[in-house]
């Protein structure tokens, strides 16, 4: 275990970066995903066609391809340089938004068709009804799906190591090479991810139990 103690700073730094990317991705994705969901439902045909293409690209292609496109293709096409870390943060946010749009749209549609009518009938405007009536409920219903999204987002951040960004996986990559204890290093890495994801899933479960709307349970 001594080889781990020696490399503790490396592991901690990597872990922090992994957590940062995941949290940024999940929250920025939530904001953007909500906008996309509202746009898809209420935005008319052109907007929703555009959103469909966006979603199809980000859900249909692997995260590695998206990362490589943002780091190699886009800079080459526009003759600029993009910092791989910034590209990484952006790709995970955009990617997560595409998935979260689906969940949020499902939650908004499945239960609240009639609530829109109710909101309008008491004199609220359409945007008001969306913000004050539909969204608060939809976001509570979507928590379990959100928890799954958090897990898969965390797992896919491991792809950052391919770009040479120093996340948790890449920390263990260099530890494995330097210490020659390849198997131990990778097992340790796997365990750390497992612990982090298990803890976060538990937290999501607790939050859902507290926040869930009694009587309404849908799977999105």
């Amino acid at each position: 275990m001594s080889f781990l103690a020696e490399n503790l700073p490396l592991i901690v730094d990597g872990f922090i970066l992994t957590i940062e990317v995941t949290l940024f991705g999940i929250f920025a994705g939530l904001g953007l995903g909500t906008i996309l969901a509202i746009g898809d439902i209420y935005g008319g045909k052109i907007v929703s066609t555009f959103i469909r293409f966006y979603v199809e690209f980000f859900r249909g292609s692997p995260i590695i391809v998206q990362l490589f496109i943002s780091v190699y293709v886009i800079p080459a096409m526009f003759q600029t340089l993009i910092d791989p870390i910034i590209a990484g943060f952006l790709v995970f946010a955009l990617n997560s938004a595409a998935y979260q749009k689906g969940y949020i749209k499902g939650a908004m549609q499945a239960v609240f068709e009639d609530q829109m009518q109710a909101g309008l009938s008491v004199g609220m405007s359409k945007p008001q009804t969306i913000v004050y009536v539909i969204l608060p409920q939809a976001l509570r219903i979507v928590i379990p799906a959100w928890s799954n999204e958090f897990c898969s987002l965390t797992k896919s951040t491991a792809a950052l190591s391919i770009l040479g960004i120093r996340d948790l996986t890449s920390a263990f990559q260099s530890i494995a090479i330097r210490s020659f204890r390849v198997l131990e290093a990778w097992i340790m890495c796997a365990i750390l991810y497992l612990i982090w994801i298990t803890i976060m899933t538990k937290i999501f479960d607790i939050v859902y139990e507290k926040k869930k709307i009694p009587g309404i349970e849908i799977s999105v």
């Binding site: 390849v182 990778w186 097992i187 890495c189 994801i197």
Partner: peptide
Amino acid sequence: EKVFRGIPELVLMLLFYRGVGLF
């Protein structure tokens, strides 16, 4: 289920290929 859903696929591949593959 928890173990295989909670570890990145990338890490699992490296673990088995580089780590277990050594032995």
